[in-house]
Amino acid sequence: MENQIALHERIHELFARYLDAMPGLDEAYHTMTSEAYKGGALDGKTKRLMAMTAAIVAGCRGCILFQTGEALALGASADEILEACAVAISLGGTMAAAETTRVVAYLEERGVLPSA
């Protein structure tokens, strides 16, 4: 499996280049996501774990890595992330289980989960 941190950084870099070329979209995108993920009845960490779960079920590798990183930045533990992965697997079956391996690799690379 490819390096998940490098993949995350490359996707982020390319999307930033895209948004630079689309200034109106850039502002709208950041306004919408800032509003969606700010704390409210649900805190930001919970929202990021929810988004990570949806990304796993949808099979969006960039979203999986981004939302996992954001959840970690907001204080999510490896155990919380892995429990959210279990929910994704219960919804998405074997395809979500396969995408969960990307989360495990990312957590290992970040030093959050000991490697086997």
Rank of each mutant, 00 (worst) to 15 (best):
A96L: 05
A76R: 01
A84D: 06
E9Q: 15
Y106L: 09
A51P: 01
Y106T: 01
E99T: 00
A71P: 05
K47A: 03
M95T: 12
T31Q: 15
S115D: 11
E83T: 08
R48W: 11
A98P: 06
I89A: 08
C85Q: 10
P114T: 08
V87C: 05
L19W: 10
M32L: 13
A36G: 04
E27P: 00
H12I: 04
T53K: 07
G62W: 10
E99V: 00
E13C: 00
D26E: 13
A36W: 02
I89M: 13
V87P: 02
F66A: 12
N3R: 13
D20V: 00
A41D: 12
I81R: 10
M1R: 12
L25F: 06
G111Y: 05
A36Y: 04
M32R: 12
R110T: 02
L82F: 01
V103T: 08
A55D: 03
L91Q: 07
E108W: 02
L19V: 00
H12M: 13
D79N: 06
L19M: 15
A55E: 04
D43W: 07
H12K: 15
A88I: 03
Y18L: 14
E109D: 04
D79R: 07
A6P: 04
G69R: 14
L113M: 10
A98E: 11
A58F: 10
I81C: 05
E2P: 13
H12S: 14
G24A: 15
T94D: 13
T101N: 05
V57C: 10
M32W: 06
L14N: 13
S90C: 00
S34I: 06
L107D: 09
T101V: 07
Q67Y: 14
G92N: 01
G40F: 03
A55G: 10
D43E: 15
V57K: 04
V104W: 07
L72E: 12
I56D: 08
S115P: 14
Q4N: 04
M1W: 07
K47W: 07
T46S: 15
L42Q: 12
T100I: 04
E2S: 04
V57W: 08
T100D: 03
S115Y: 02
Y18D: 11
A28P: 02
I89L: 01
T33H: 11
L72W: 13
I5S: 01
R61F: 00
T68S: 15
G93D: 09
Y106M: 05
V57L: 14
F15L: 15
V103D: 01
V87T: 15
Y106P: 02
M1Q: 07
M22P: 00
A116K: 11
M1P: 05
S90Q: 02
A105T: 11
G93L: 09
A86Q: 10
I11K: 08
V112D: 03
R10V: 03
A6N: 07
G62L: 14
A36S: 08
H12Y: 15
A54H: 01
F66C: 12
S34H: 11
I5R: 05
L113V: 10
